[in-house]
């Protein structure tokens, strides 16, 4: 496909820091290659801003190959933009028309406060992980090789699908309730499906859900928006599994 150049109008959320009020600013950016990724377009815009002696726009990014979960951005009303099952770094400018107006906003959630411009603080996810998203392993020298424990293929596959979650927060951003249930559901599921995770299953789900609530995420109403917008295609099945795990734990925990 021959590369093309397009001109775009950008409406970007600018906010100096966590304590100031932000607002949408408009920028014009010309000759954007349709082969460039969305983040490369952002780089190009920042070059332009620097040349104009303006403050560049702060946005999160790291690996730029869709695996780290750093990039975010709510583009034209959708998490990670108009394409499906991609992160923002995997979104290409060929998805936009010449002369298009593109809205770029940070994730919006009480639990993800804006730090600067398009960068939000997602440490709430880290704290949920720390509350139970792990298995305790004896590392005193007689650690059992994980591969020595037989696991049914179907369970291993499902656990792997759940573990594909990169914690980007698109589920929270696109949920009308800012609910983190898909994230927590995936993290609970990846362990609940495996024998190594069963040992701490009861406390894990109770602690992770409690932490999720303390962080101020909303409640799940099963609209299914998260599943559609998840760059890794995490299934709602994981939320249902967490609901089952929670019910079991709620009834049996002492």
């Amino acid at each position: 496909m021959a590369s093309k150049y397009i001109n775009v109008n950008l409406k970007v959320w600018r906010q100096k820091n966590a304590n100031t009020k932000g607002k949408m600013e408009t920028y014009k950016l010309d000759t954007v290659s349709t082969d460039s990724s969305f983040l490369e377009m952002m780089d190009q815009l920042n070059e332009q801003l620097i040349n104009e002696r303006q403050e560049p726009i702060a946005f999160d990014h790291d690996c730029r190959e869709g695996i780290c979960g750093m990039c975010s951005l709510y583009i034209n009303g959708r998490a990670h933009g108009p394409d499906n099952a991609v992160t923002t770094c995997q979104l290409h400018m060929r998805k936009f028309d010449d002369g298009a107006t593109i809205y770029i906003e940070p994730w919006r959630s009480k639990a993800f406060p804006v730090i600067k411009d398009l960068v939000v603080d997602r440490s709430a996810f880290d704290r949920i992980q720390q509350a139970g998203g792990f298995v305790s392993v004896n590392t005193s020298g007689n650690t059992i090789d994980a591969n020595a424990t037989p696991i049914p293929k179907a369970d291993a596959d499902k656990a792997f699908e759940a573990a594909a979650c990169i914690g980007c927060g698109a589920c929270v951003a696109s949920c009308k309730n800012s609910s983190a249930m898909l994230f927590v559901g995936a993290k609970v599921s990846q362990y609940a499906l495996l024998p190594q995770g069963k040992v701490e299953a009861t406390n894990r789900v109770l602690n992770m859900v409690r932490q999720m609530e303390e962080e101020g995420f909303g409640n799940c109403t099963n609209t299914g928006a998260c599943e559609v917008e998840c760059p890794k295609g995490i299934s709602l099945e994981n939320i249902a599994r967490m609901n089952r795990e929670f019910m079991k734990a709620m009834i049996t925990a002492e």
């Binding site: 409406k11 959320w13 949408m24 709510y74 034209n76 009303g77 959708r78 108009p82 809205y103 906003e105 919006r108 959630s109 009480k110 639990a111 696109s174 009308k176 309730n177 800012s178 609910s179 101020g216 995420f217 909303g218 409640n219 109403t221 099963n222 609209t223 299914g224 928006a225 559609v228 917008e229």
Partner: peptide
């Protein structure tokens, strides 16, 4: 109660939102 909590979870909304791209209106307006 759930609705009030859910509204509080997003104090600042989006300037541009396309919720129809990922969910049905009746599911969002319960």
């Amino acid at each position: 109660l759930l609705t009030i909590q859910n509204k509080k979870a997003r104090p600042i909304g989006y300037a541009h939102n396309s919720p129809n791209a990922n969910s049905k209106f009746f599911a969002r307006q319960m």
